[in-house]
Write a protein that binds this DNA or RNA. Structure first.
Lengths: 257, 257
DNA sequence: ACAAAAGTGTTCACCTTACACCCATGA
DNA sequence: TCATGGGTGTAAGGTGAACACTTTTGT
């Protein structure tokens, strides 16, 4: 969270550094305990929860802005990030909340202030390893933490819709491209990978068939190690073969579940 | 094409009516003679060809803006239109062309003029029946006509890349959803539909297998009529069953070729 | 009769799906 | 030894690709 003086500067001079009418909202998925988590920030002055978001600096591309915003919230570089939809309805941020956020600092704020304008938002979604993330608040938020995807609080503006669309996009993506590289630790068991798929798709997947399919893709390397301290047969550990993974990401060959 | 006075008004007052830093570019595919065509507009003052595009009025959504722009260029309502990507690099419209377009009218134009700013463009693609279109120029163009997709002229800014990405998105879409509703006349033969698919995908498709697959989708109705005046066996005519077509569009079940 | 393209059927390879069987481990 | 989950195999059904055969029409 920033000081009042800094926030005033941001309100009144922000339009000199950022593109007006444009924002970026990030749907950040994390995976833990066989559950999908979502990273949310609590908006200052109104206490409403929202997607981590931000604006686009005049000297950075939209993709770079999304990466920066995510880096600032999570501490992570090289995040898997995908622009999935534009949210451009007229009324999406025309709510009392918009004014309340800035009026808490400056009651006489001009109606033409850039922060009170209509915002067209670029929706991005990201997949991260929850263990590697240090949730950090930003300029406009006083708290940043993980929420269970199945028990989200009411969200700012149309952010609930954005989350729904992001999940759809994620599932569509999962059916066509390998995913998991960013949500799991470096070494993992086949079951851990399968649980991830089951959680994202919301349905069980046959164990044997999943294993065969994943192995045939050729993006996994079986290690000599096995997971220890388990009360059952020790499973092999795998890791992604980054080179082949990239190949498959770029190819347009789908594989469906 | 508009008068100099109108253009001056647009240059100097446009930012009051349109969202700054935002534009819409439309990749309009048409189908004729087993070839994909692209609708292009010739930019005033510089003679460069470009995608039909425009800006977003403050009182319309981004989707509505795209529809309006397309309606103005083609005369068509209810066009199949899909937002496929955002083009947001810093330098994409930072070229001498940008200045030349406006300086032809006003040599002393302010560098901070909204038209000279960095533009983030929302890429849309559309599929239309070429017979129903009346290409019409707009504010910033002096000509509007169809081009053969395989022989495009050099295009403004990054528009060549936008076209490439649109074609990729179209092919991806074609593999997952029924398409054709908007590119063919109401009644068509199975071969006409197949030619459309072959043209978009850029490769031949087995006749028998295509027919079986399309019919199994259940979105086609075979009519009692046949095509006449052909020098071979008269083929059946089909039309789309709009209701089932919509169902399939909304379902997430893919069908791949 | 012939050329051309429609309409239809058959075969084969492959993939998905469901499910079964045995194995290794710690309690 | 038993419960638990890992590793692997197999049979059934479906799908796509390739291709062949017959039909219809105008010339």
């Amino acid at each position: 969270m920033i000081s009042d003086a800094e926030f005033l500067e941001f309100i009144h001079k922000g339009h000199e550094h950022y593109l007006t009418h444009l924002s970026v909202d990030c749907v950040v998925f994390g995976f833990h305990d066989n559950q999908l988590k979502l990273l949310l920030t609590k908006v200052i002055n109104i206490g409403q929860w929202s997607l981590p978001g931000g604006f686009i600096r005049k000297e950075e591309s939209v993709d770079m802005a999304a990466k920066r915003i995510l880096r600032e919230r999570t501490g992570l570089e090289n995040i898997f990030l995908e622009q999935f939809k534009v949210f451009g309805s007229v009324e999406r941020n025309n709510t009392p909340d918009t004014k309340r956020i800035v009026q808490a600092i400056d009651k006489n704020i001009n109606e033409k202030n850039w922060l009170l304008q209509r915002m067209v938002s670029m929706g991005y979604y990201a997949l991260v390893d929850i263990e590697k993330v240090t949730p950090t608040s930003d300029t406009l938020s006083e708290e940043c933490r993980w929420w269970d995807l199945t028990a989200l609080p009411p969200l700012l503006f149309d952010h609930t819709d954005i989350v729904k669309d992001a999940l759809k996009a994620l599932r569509r993506h999962l059916a066509n491209k390998p995913i998991g590289f960013n949500l799991l630790p470096e070494k993992f068991t086949m079951t851990e990978l399968r649980r991830l798929y089951e959680t994202i798709l919301g349905r069980p997947i046959d164990r044997g068939n999943f294993e065969k399919k994943m192995l045939k893709l050729g993006i996994l390397e079986r290690l000599d190690e096995v997971k220890s301290n388990v009360t059952y047969k020790a499973p092999f550990l795998y890791r992604f073969n980054t080179a082949k993974y990239q190949e498959l990401l770029e190819a347009d060959t789908g594989f469906g579940f």
